Simulated scan of single mutants.
Amino acid sequence: MKTVLTNKNISIRTRRRALECYIEPILMYGCETWTISKQTQKKLEATEMWFLGGMLRISWTAKKTNDTVLEEAHTTRLLISKIRKRQATFFGHVMRREKLENLVTTGMLEGKRSRGKQREKLIEGLTDWLKAGKSLEAIEATKDRKKWRTMIANAVKQGT
């Protein structure tokens, strides 16, 4: 794909579309179950910028800011919001099933907690992104598909 993505004879819009169709699905495989920390988010954003810089044939030693690269590519950062949207859709599906996956995803299992700092749960990342307030509010919102889809759409519009 490198020859297609770096070909100057092909428009940037077409190359961007090829990136979205062939490369991003491989990158985002299984992203529905990831917990995205600040460090992971930075790595994903850096990867997105690396792809765009490669498409535009911008050397990594060139002193160009990410904003100028995004302007040249006629795009914005979309990868994180795509991942979050897929996570929220998957989470809503799991919550409506009310089976074992529901318990595992919410982390509401009985037993002792392990020592040390606890891992961030998927629900905590989603409630922050959706600005739902509490985890229980987000879980309740999944029961009503229309309300859940509206919450997801609003979060995607905000671009956070």
Rank of each mutant, 00 (worst) to 15 (best):
T3N: 05
V4N: 00
V4Q: 01
N7E: 02
K8E: 13
N9D: 13
N9V: 03
N9I: 02
I10A: 07
S11Q: 05
I12H: 05
R13Q: 08
T14Y: 06
R17G: 05
R17H: 11
L19P: 00
E20H: 03
C21I: 07
C21T: 08
I23V: 07
P25Q: 01
I26Q: 10
I26S: 05
I26N: 02
I26P: 00
L27G: 00
Y29N: 09
Y29F: 14
G30D: 08
G30F: 10
W34R: 04
I36K: 06
S37D: 02
T40C: 11
Q41K: 13
K42M: 09
K43N: 11
L44I: 08
L44D: 00
E45F: 02
E45H: 10
E45Q: 15
W50A: 04
W50Q: 04
F51W: 13
G53A: 12
G53W: 04
G54A: 07
M55D: 09
L56H: 12
L56I: 06
R57I: 06
I58D: 14
S59K: 12
S59Y: 02
W60G: 10
T61S: 15
T61W: 06
A62Y: 07
K63F: 02
T68N: 12
V69C: 08
V69S: 09
E72N: 11
A73E: 08
A73L: 12
H74P: 08
H74N: 15
R77I: 04
R77L: 14
L78M: 14
I80G: 08
K82T: 10
R84E: 10
R84F: 13
K85W: 02
Q87H: 09
Q87I: 13
A88F: 03
F90A: 07
F90W: 15
F90R: 12
G92Y: 03
H93T: 13
M95L: 07
M95R: 06
R96W: 10
R97Q: 15
R97V: 08
K99I: 05
L100W: 10
V104K: 12
T105I: 09
T105M: 11
L109K: 09
E110V: 08
K112N: 14
G116S: 12
K117F: 12
Q118K: 15
Q118G: 14
K121S: 07
K121A: 07
I123E: 00
E124C: 05
L126I: 03
D128S: 12
L130T: 03
K131L: 06
K131T: 10
A132L: 09
S135P: 01
S135M: 05
L136T: 07
E137R: 12
E137F: 09
E140W: 01
T142Q: 05
K146H: 04
K147P: 00
W148I: 00
T150V: 06
A153E: 07
A155Q: 03
A155S: 10
V156S: 00
K157S: 05
K157P: 00
Q158C: 04
